[in-house]
Amino acid sequence: MSWALQIRWLWFQKTDLNRPWKGLDIPVHSNAVALFHISIVSHVGQGTNTLFWSDKWLFGCSLAELAPSVVAAVPIKIRQQRTVAEAFMERQWPRDIQGGFSLVWLYEYFQLWDVLLEVNLSEDNDQHTWRFDGSGSFSTKSAYQAFFNGAMTFEPWRRLWKAWASSKYKVFLWLAIRNKCWTVDRLARRGLPHPDRCVFCDQADEDIQHILTDCVFAREFWYKVLAPVGMPANTPGQDDDVFAEWWKKARKHADKTKRKGLNSLIILGAWTLWKHRNSCVYEGVRPCIQLIMREFNSERQLWHLAGPDRCRL
């Protein structure tokens, strides 16, 4: 968000010449500068407010994209200051180029020369378009979202990270939903010691999705958790073998006034199942519904005392 707000400064610096701080050095993070440069397309009029070497003004591209070898031979200071108007004044732009030449450089240079001969400046002001908004104008929201383009999505993020629960429970469930917990399947792939089957039911191969929803022991546990709060129908069924999908469905079927409480309840229930499973694996405890429910209810009472009213069921 900080970077998105910094880009707002750069946008005003580019489009509003009446800002009193115009021309001053603005402390902007390099990531914000990089996003700004790839997000702005300039339409040249007089060419006084468009940088010749670095802005995207020729066919929607920058010269660095069209002739990278030529631009690499221009000092950075000149790239950051030379405007289109100055570059065309008495053909100043070829004199900006310094450094050794190559066959690739010569090819790019003559191609660029031919293209620039067809450019004609006008009396209109330069116009700048923000690519990440349909209106063409900058918004902090679109800049913020642009930082996440190409990022991996995590569908349950809102009901997980916005829920009322301690961070350690949320991190555990984040790992569980992404199948990153050290269950039998994960241990076996790495050649580490592991139980042969699920310690709860001794009927199936164990993975974290099985432990939290698909196991008959887990389903009985969830029924005993949800029945007292009037939601027995939300207990995982035989077709519910993915925890995140079951959670999404259970929340959708719950009354809107109870959804915040249900999120906290499910997070606590998943954590309790995981702890009970570890006690069975590492401490020799036998799976027991009565024992796990005592552990769950004890912890739930503490959450009930500490949590806000809107997160209680």
Rank of each mutant, 00 (worst) to 15 (best):
I177L: 04
T153Y: 05
I177Q: 01
A34K: 10
E206T: 06
V216S: 15
Y169E: 03
R310V: 14
L291K: 07
V171C: 06
V171L: 01
R310C: 07
D205Y: 12
G47H: 14
L66S: 03
S2G: 06
R277D: 00
E155A: 14
K22G: 15
V104G: 14
T83I: 05
A204P: 10
F110I: 12
S167R: 15
V74G: 07
P75L: 09
S42F: 12
S279N: 02
E220C: 14
G100V: 15
D205K: 11
F101W: 13
E283D: 10
H276R: 05
I208G: 03
Q81M: 10
K258L: 15
A34D: 00
V184P: 02
Q209P: 04
A204T: 06
D239I: 12
Y282Q: 09
P68D: 01
Y144S: 14
C201W: 03
G45E: 12
E295P: 01
K180Y: 15
A218D: 08
D309S: 08
R259S: 03
P308V: 07
C215Q: 02
L262Y: 06
S54A: 15
L116W: 06
L265D: 07
V104K: 12
D240E: 08
D185N: 06
T235S: 07
L112G: 00
K249W: 04
I208L: 07
L291V: 08
A218W: 10
Q92N: 07
W113T: 15
A72C: 13
V70S: 08
P308G: 00
N263H: 12
D126V: 10
I7Q: 02
D16E: 02
I26F: 13
K256L: 10
K14I: 12
V84I: 12
S279E: 14
W57K: 09
W222K: 10
F217Y: 00
Q80R: 10
E108C: 06
T153M: 12
F296V: 07
R294N: 14
V41L: 15
N297M: 02
K256D: 11
M89W: 14
T213S: 11
Y282T: 06
L66V: 07
L24S: 02
Q98C: 13
L173D: 05
